[in-house]
């Protein structure tokens, strides 16, 4: 049984300009201890999907139109707030791209790490403090006991991200959702943070959903990947299979567009045009207007995400027919 099972999630934003179908019917699941990558370009709906699951979408203008997200027998999309609060920040935690916007600048690091322990675990002050010290040590922060008294601005970007991770893991969650956790960091620091997440995942046995735009980050860190485009999942597979035999034309194009993937003197395979406007209703496959393989049928029928090989699902009618 999967740890988190999302079925046909739809999150729309009702704006003055029209209804934005940010997430338009996605289904995915993550097993205990597994790392799932969600890749997509900006606006593909990858963050909104996960924020919806945790009830963090501002409503209005957002609205969860349909779907279920079952964690431990509880549908998070329809659970009462009190129930959700016991799970969020305790059993399922989330870290974000920019630690400075998630850390409270007026509170010491210590106070912020201790808070969830006091609230969720009912730990005593002294006990919570000890746990906070070991949480900071675990993420590689020196002089942890001293550092509890520091404020966020006294840390570098990489250290702040470590503090965020310490906070997210202090309650020993079963699922960590990491939304572009290293995008704001330099590459050498990114490597440190990704190693840290992987190491802690091993020792704590939690599942991780890693949201990223970087296919390189996925390749090195995830067991399975879901590729999102225009609010839908267009392909999902085991990481090795996705990179070795990408079946959806969007995934193929994305891989070919990376500099370094090909001969240096060859031009990059760019994808013509840009992603669709999510306000206008999309008829047919959302990628069809940019797809080199598109035929008339692609512009008429909306492709469902179906298995084209065991464990490898693709939302492309031509791939499903074995034509690509």
């Amino acid at each position: 049984m999967p740890l988190l099972d999302i079925d046909d999630l739809r999150t729309y934003f009702h704006t003055r300009a029209g209804t934005v179908r940010a997430v338009d019917g996605i289904s995915l699941h993550v097993a205990e201890g597994e790392t799932l990558g969600i890749v997509g370009e900006s606006g593909s709906g990858k963050s909104v999907a996960m924020l919806s699951v945790l009830g963090l979408i501002p409503q209005p203008p957002g609205r969860i139109e349909a779907g279920r997200a079952v964690y431990d027998g509880v549908d998070l999309l329809h659970a009462p707030q009190s129930r959700l609060r016991r799970i969020r920040g305790s059993r399922i935690t989330m870290i974000f791209q920019d630690p400075m916007t998630s850390l409270n600048p007026y509170m010491t690091i210590g106070a912020q790490i201790i808070e969830p322990l006091r609230i969720h675990n009912g730990a005593s002050r002294a006990d919570a403090r000890d746990q906070a010290v070991s949480a900071l040590q675990r993420v590689g922060i020196q002089d942890a006991a001293e550092r509890l008294r520091s404020f966020p601005h006294q840390f570098s970007g990489g250290m702040r991200q470590r503090v965020m991770i310490a906070m997210a893991l202090v309650t020993r969650p079963r699922l960590l959702i990491a939304d572009e956790p290293t995008t704001a960091l330099d590459v050498t620091v990114q490597a440190q943070i990704l190693d840290l997440i992987r190491e802690l995942q091993g020792s704590l046995g939690m599942a991780v959903i890693l949201i990223t735009h970087d296919l390189g980050v996925v390749a090195g860190n995830c067991a399975r990947v879901a590729v999102m485009y225009a609010g839908r999942i267009v392909e999902s597979a085991a990481t090795d299979a996705l990179f070795a035999t990408p079946r959806h034309p969007y995934t193929q194009a994305l891989l070919a567009a990376l500099p370094g993937a090909r001969d240096r003197d060859a031009p990059l395979e760019s994808i013509p045009g840009f992603p669709p406007d999510l306000i206008a209703p999309i008829v047919g496959c959302p990628f069809a207007p940019r797809c080199v393989h598109a035929v008339d049928a692609c512009r008429e029928t909306t492709p469902a995400l179906e298995e084209t090989a065991p464990g490898h699902a693709t939302a492309c009618i031509r791939a499903q027919r074995g034509e690509l």
Binding site: V187, T188, Q190, L194, L215, G216, F243, G260
Partner: peptide, 27 residues
């Protein structure tokens, strides 16, 4: 060397095989 080895490669097989130089500390 460290800079090049820190860039994640979009290839799961190479990612598993290669030896990375993970630097200590921050800039």
């Amino acid at each position: 060397r460290a800079l090049i080895s820190a860039v994640p490669m979009p290839d799961p097989v190479k990612e598993r095989q290669r030896q990375r130089t993970v630097l200590r500390g921050d800039p």
